[in-house]
Nucleic acid binder design. Structure first.
Length: 205
DNA sequence: CTCCAGGAGTGTA
DNA sequence: TACACTCATGGA
């Protein structure tokens, strides 16, 4: 029997607890803060925001950007990110999250894309981890993995490929994304690719 | 010291 | 459509 890539990754990494957060708003803020930035760096900022009582649309939208910048600094790109999460806070201050999340998936996605600082990947992270919509996330690690398999394509082409091959299931999408990132952090650096499960899969996928 | 991390926006050809 | 450039701190 031929194992799927997903099964092989599960065997190696098991169940992964992914994107721990107390609230959906925290997921969204974290999604923006982690852009091109290590997660452990983002954790400091999230802790600071919580400590300052700012981890809510209402509270954050009333803080001077300058003050947010100081808090966001450890996550890098602090000037843009401070402004962007504040803008997002204002948006959800005007539009209650429960209502926004009730929009049809595609409408919700394009709605998120309108917000400055939210591109394809961040939008899908919001859908998948905050709104609970099965939208497959394509990140840098996913692209590298696909390249290893000889698969090229833009964001939507790769996303369509995964979604067509998988059951449209929230848990599967979340786990697969988590597994790919975990795999990538372990192997997709410094030419460690030779020993990873993806390399064993060439010609089978 | 160098390199780069779970991107996005803008400008140019 | 396809790149190049910018944003920025902190850890290996």
């Amino acid at each position: 029997m031929i194992k799927t890539l997903y099964q092989m990754l599960v065997e190696e990494f098991g169940r992964l607890k992914w994107w721990p957060a107390d609230t959906d708003f925290e997921v969204i803020v974290g999604a923006v803060l982690t852009q091109q930035t290590r997660w452990d760096n983002v954790e400091k900022v999230i802790a600071r925001l919580k400590g300052a009582g700012l981890m809510s649309p209402e509270a954050m939208s009333n803080v001077p950007v300058a003050e947010l910048e100081m808090i966001v600094k450890p996550a890098g790109f602090y000037r843009q990110k401070a402004r962007r999460i504040r803008h997002i806070a204002e948006y959800f201050g005007r539009n209650p999250m429960e209502e926004v999340f009730m929009l049809p998936d595609k409408v919700l996605r394009s709605e998120m894309l309108k917000l400055p600082g939210i591109g394809n990947e961040t939008a899908d992270c919001i859908l998948l981890y905050a709104a609970g919509k099965p939208s497959f996330v394509i990140d840098a690690y996913t692209r590298r993995m696909c390249r290893c398999l000889g698969i090229e394509g833009d964001y939507h082409e790769l996303q369509e490929m995964f979604e067509a091959a998988l059951p449209r299931d929230l848990y599967v999408y979340r786990q697969y994304h988590a597994l790919i990132v975990e795999h990538g952090k372990r192997y997709c650096l410094k030419k460690k690719c030779e020993s990873c499960v993806v390399s064993k899969l060439k010609g089978i996928f």
